[in-house]
Design a protein around this nucleic acid. Sequence first.
DNA 1: GCCGTTTTCGGCCCGACTGTTTTCAGTCG
Length: 594
Amino acid sequence: MNIHKNMNNQELTRLLRAVEAAYRVKGESPFRIRAYDNAADSVEHATRELKDLWEEGRLQDIPGVGANIASHLEELYETGDVKHFRRAFKNLPEAMFELLEVPGIGPKTSYKLTKTLGITKSRSAVKRVKQAALKGKIRKIEGFGEESENQIIKGIEEFERRENRMLLPTATQLAEEFIAYMTKEKAVLRIDPLGSLRRRTATIGDVDVAVATRNAGKVIDHFKKFPQAKRILAAGENTARLIHRSGRQIDIKTQIPKRYGALLQHFTGSKNHNIHLREVALEKGRSLSEHGIKVGKITQEYSDEEKFYNALGMDWIPPELREDTGEIEAAIHHALPKLVSPNQIRGDLHIHTNYPWQSSHDMGTHSMKEMIEKANELGYDYVGVSDHNPSTSAHKTQQLISEVKKRTEFLEQIKYSLEKKSEKRIIKVLNSLEVDILADGKLALPDEALKMLDYAVVSVHSSMRMSNARMTQRLLKGLSHPKAKILGHPTGRLLSKREGYEADWERVFKFVKAKNKFVEINAWSSRLDLPDTLVRIAIDIGVKLVINTDSHAVSHMDLMHYGVDAARRGWASPKDIINTLPFEKLKEMLLETT
DNA sequence: GCCGTTTTCGGCCCGACTGTTTTCAGTCG
């Protein structure tokens, strides 16, 4: 186990899980094991680097990190090693921790395999286990058999071509295809996504689906015949799992209709939400499961999820909020937010067109007219056309000004022709640009050009590796210009490609609020930026947000609802989102320059 | 090992599926 001073949250998560695994092998107290599991979960989802928190003396701000684990982490950051962890790993083969990544292999199996086969080096561990399995050596080990040997081979094959998590739209599409197939079986009475897909997280591991049925056998049989299945992993009486052709896993859980609400609740998660919910139930002498609420020996049944929550003395909690970040307390006190919904969005303030100029970044594929017409079709009241600013290297200052002037006139003409053509409702068109915040915090357009715009979306597109302090300064400076109203894709993250850059977000948000600026929730699926956790922090500070698609083609404008998902996960109500406002109100807020 | 509108001690979520075990352990969600 590689332990060093500069471990980031991802490495730290692995380390804590390794300690957990070591404890499992050694038969430590189940509660201590769970404590490490909790701490690992918590670190994995933390919005700040633990090392930074350590520097501020706030390690225990992370739930699940108490006095003991905090002291171990202090030792880690001070000395680059943790004696306590070393002791936990003592007498365990290094290689066993590598095997834990293989689906189907847990700590005990991993230990047994590495020990019996004499595997020590972690790097070649998986390969050597596979070789042993292919030679039929594993079935001879006590406790293993032919079948488990095959399972190990298949698990390793999956591990070898393992891909990252799916983006939300990929998972949504996969689920839709699967649900369409399942619905052909008449025994399927109701069918819904579960898990992180139902909670609408930015990335999804497996697709989980619930089925209400009076004949689970028929449903499972139909499931097993899914033409897109590469192999069936498991199929019991009520649940089954398969690997889709794409390599993705799909699980179904069936339940009788009168218990369907309990099933939905149980498998929507998150894990932490359910654990907390069951604790609340236990205090009332009730026990929760996918079958219902058990009081003594009697299981109360719930066909719908709302009644399930109500029975526990709380309001129904929207799936997007089920992360155990205060939603259960809020539900008990009837204080859940009324979340924003897609039909409340009245406009898109960040779209790109193919307007012909030498752009600083990629242009759109459709014309201004086409994009505006699409916005009109979507029923929007307004749209802000915000191409990238012209390249600063290819234009002198005066040229930049004249380019923006030309484009402004062009857009005016389009607006005019639209008004002439349309008899009925006319969409309001705003003149905007997405302007780079350069490395020194200056905007990539001179004042005279900015002046012509209704507003600017300002974004970072270059020099992203920068210290937290410098990036914070850069963002504040970029946002200082009166026309800079929206901070575009604020963290710059690209899901499964690149981490967002670091900045002091609390400071940025306070600045944004004080200066009447807005922060974007970019709906593009690999961005979803602001991330939901930061949406929550921004809203708590009182920042107003705007959900934009950043469309580069007509079809992209349909993806707004993914941005709404992120907003909902961050507890956003319509009042937090400025593009739920009617045009006149929006104009007041957006076009005022203070 | 964590945590606290009953508690700084004494609790800590729940069940399905699989394989090899003849009664249950390991893994997963």
